[in-house]
Design a protein around this nucleic acid. Structure first.
Lengths: 207, 207
DNA sequence: GATTGTGAATAGATTCACAGCT
DNA sequence: AGCTGTGAATCTATTCACAATC
């Protein structure tokens, strides 16, 4: 169970894809699969599957393939989704609200435990079972609720200060939806999701 | 104005970032900037800025730098965001609703012109000024409204069929939020945004 | 003197192809 | 016989460093 920190984001994202495929296969009643069949079935690359997995150990059986249940469990453990992570959503606008209701955020691996906003109008409202708290409570709530992951769903102008507040309060990772290049501290890994950039990429192909 | 189709996604995404930075600078009243200053100010790489831009022409002045207004316009034209693209959102759940209200989708470059759903409960409702139409109207509406970009905000199980319907109806690009590996036809470039994969990547760092 | 644009160098990711197990 | 795990080969992306230009 090697755990070097130099695993690329590309690899990690593919591991998530593999995990999803394995779950599907298991639902379909399969118990074993080869990298080749996995690749064929889900439009992936067999060599890449093997290389990706090889970074973390020898999970397969030569001449046979991978035991689906076993590999699934190993990937879950590797990605850390075999335990529950507590999530706080900062920003209770359209996006924050949609995220709070997102099924993936109320699953076995991720659980929203707080929704915050600095707009007095929104504080006190109920969203997906959570009463919106004022952002000023953030430094208290994060440690109190054991929040490990912060989700930034605030306007661009407010993103940096809220990132800083989350980092100071002790979250271990941040998912940012605001369209800014955050100045991140390396102790708090951050992933940015920027809709406008995706749209502009598509726009490039419309000519 | 070279327009080869072999520009990497990474490069395109950085062009979007540069564009955003230039707009900010222009708002701040700047008129000229060097790759070095741009890099310093927004935590980018000067050499990479120059290489990225060089793929499309010579936009700068040696010894001087880049004219902000000029470069901004060239990037806008390059990315195709100097014209309006019509957008249809398929799926009027939480996410579809949040997207319909997203300011970026009611801007100069992108305009939502239709929201569709196959749930009779949702058809007829108003979302951000749009009356939700039934998905069966899709083949008629897409050409009629001149929709170029389709946004998939439907459950995983419905994603492929709706992608196919959008492609058949003539959209030129698709942004997919459903957690599936779509089988895409190469004529309709597709970008997938998968929240669960982002979360699992962050989860990896929580140990 | 300053900065771009770019070939050459380096680093990183993917694919190939086969030795080594079962 | 069949499939994994992996070194070597290829392809892609980034960084370096400097000649060309203003």
């Amino acid at each position: 169970m090697s755990q070097r920190d130099d695993v690329s984001s590309l690899t990690l994202n593919r591991l998530s894809v593999y995990l999803r495929c394995l779950r599907q296969l298991q639902q379909d009643g399969e118990t074993r699969i080869s990298s080749q069949d996995l690749a064929r079935r889900f439009h992936l690359s067999a060599a890449q599957i093997r290389k990706d997995l090889a970074q973390f150990g020898e999970f397969g059986i030569r001449g046979v393939g991978y035991q689906i249940d076993d590999l699934r469990r190993r990937l879950e453990s590797l990605l850390g989704v075999d335990r529950e992570h507590r999530v706080a959503i900062v920003g209770a606008g359209n996006l924050g609200t949609a995220l709070a209701r997102f099924p993936g955020f109320n699953s076995d691996s991720f659980r929203v435990v707080a929704v915050l906003d600095n707009d007095p109008q929104k504080v006190g409202r109920k969203i997906a079972g959570h009463t919106v708290c004022h952002s000023r409570e953030l430094p208290r709530l994060i440690p109190e609720l054991g929040v490990q992951i912060g989700i930034l769903a605030v306007p661009a102008a407010a993103a940096q200060e809220n990132y800083d507040a989350l980092a100071r309060a002790g979250v271990k990772a941040v998912l940012n939806f605001a369209p800014v290049q955050l100045e991140t501290c390396s102790a708090v890994p951050t992933k940015s999701v920027d809709l406008m950039i995706f749209m502009e990429e598509l726009s490039y192909f419309l000519r």
